[in-house]
Design a binder for these strands. Structure first.
Lengths: 245, 245
DNA sequence: AGAATAGTGTCTGTCAGACATTATGAC
DNA sequence: GTCATAATGTCTGACAGACACTATTCT
């Protein structure tokens, strides 16, 4: 048949299964700071392939459940942590013929920033264990299944880049926090110490925080508690923070 | 059968076609500056769906030809422009159930920066026309097929962001260029004028250019020609350029 | 009072913006 | 010489780093 076809006719005869398609999954590096260390959530795979190996949480897009790839990422995040409103950001997509033994595969990698005490770890039938692990024990070595060490590295790099010119790390803290706690988060990600006065000036001048009116008391001078002003969770500075040493 | 399975056995019985998979494509916003305007390459679709409509160049990953998604993007770029070594950068992936009438579909969007005189426009059986169009005539309106206006907007935003803190726009020029020409490129993307002295100081201090020794002569004082020092095509500045007005 | 942490005052250095000035070509 | 564009000199302002200082709590 060579007569022109309408789009409707075209779609009627079009069959997805006539073509070879890659597998498509979503993987997430879920970051939190625990005991002054950047941690990432990893799961022990309960299913083939790479059964028994550690990997980033993730899995295939479920075409009947997920309306969008962001939905899929949120579903995976909530499935492992119970967290539904974390900062979730697409980082990179990786696709090639060799990364998954099941065939040509594409994964869309996300990073999530959560406060550790907002998380309730949950296993499911895809993962027999779910644990926080310090990133510095994983990044470089090839400890994770598939290419997840590489993917983690990309996400870690994105986070390290953004800490220098955004206020994004506020998402790693609970709603109320002190400036010292916030500074500590920045120092942990930067892996450098930060000068106190410059840090406070930078954050306070950006007008992204407001005082809660409460204080965190220790055995020393109590510190003012702050919270993020509505929708100011990702301020971009015009100059990088570099830190000292 | 409930006895434990090896990975090999698992893979033997695993069949991709047992699962519903999204369509996966690559789309590219190929940018160049022509007549002091930021242009993007668009194609008139020769095939259904959206036949006859304008769209970004792109198409499905070919599992037997492309080893990686970057390969696929390079293939599409070369197919329309003949350019094989341009700056090509992954921007964002978009996937949902509604963007393509053929079904649940994911596209990995790239942007490419090319010098217009390195390009030889080529049609093929997927596109009956291939043309440069000023971005400001497309961005906001919904002129492009599928969600390509949105995707173009994401790529345009990435470019506008990067012009403020990187030297990336050098990729929009031919190998040899004057500082005034480079400044013009920055101004076009920023949509702002840039102060000459600051611009030169910024670029020259970054040590990303070297003098060719030649000059571009007009009817006025000839300008020094520069080229990019090897592998210095994407310098990151610690402070943003903002421009005036 | 002393220890410890919170928070400020203020100087310096770097780099972008502003704008005046000089340099070099064609005519 | 004039005109046009290339290139520089130099002042200002914004903001990060350094570091000494003060403030507030507990014991």
């Amino acid at each position: 048949m060579t007569s022109p076809q309408t789009e409707k006719q075209f779609l009627k005869t079009y069959n997805i299964h006539d073509y070879d398609l890659p597998l498509v999954s979503v993987d997430i590096a879920i970051f939190s700071v625990i005991d002054d260390k950047l941690n990432v959530l990893i799961v022990k795979r309960a299913q083939h392939p790479r059964k028994g190996k550690w990997a980033l949480p993730g899995g295939f897009i479920n075409l009947s459940v997920d309306k969008t790839i962001d939905d899929a990422a949120h579903r995976k995040l909530a499935g492992k942590t119970g967290v539904t409103n974390a900062h979730l950001e697409q980082v990179v997509s990786v696709g090639n013929s060799t990364r998954d033994p099941r065939g040509w595969s594409v994964t869309i990698a996300y990073m999530a920033l959560v406060s550790v005490d907002a998380v309730v770890l949950k296993k499911d039938d895809s993962s027999e264990e779910v644990v926080w692990t310090p990133v510095d024990r994983l990044s470089k070595n090839h400890n994770l299944a598939f290419d997840h060490s590489k993917i983690l590295e990309s996400c870690h790099k994105r986070l390290k880049d953004k800490v220098r010119y955004t206020s994004l790390p506020v998402n790693l803290l609970p709603p109320d926090f002190t400036l010292t706690e916030l500074q500590r988060i920045f120092e942990v990600i930067l892996a450098k110490s930060v000068e106190k006065k410059s840090f406070r000036r930078r954050i306070l001048d950006a007008q992204i925080l407001e005082e809660t009116g409460n204080f965190r008391g220790g055995s020393t001078r109590p510190a003012k508690l702050y919270r993020v002003t509505d929708n100011k969770t990702n301020h971009f500075f015009t100059r990088n923070i570099e830190g000292t040493r």
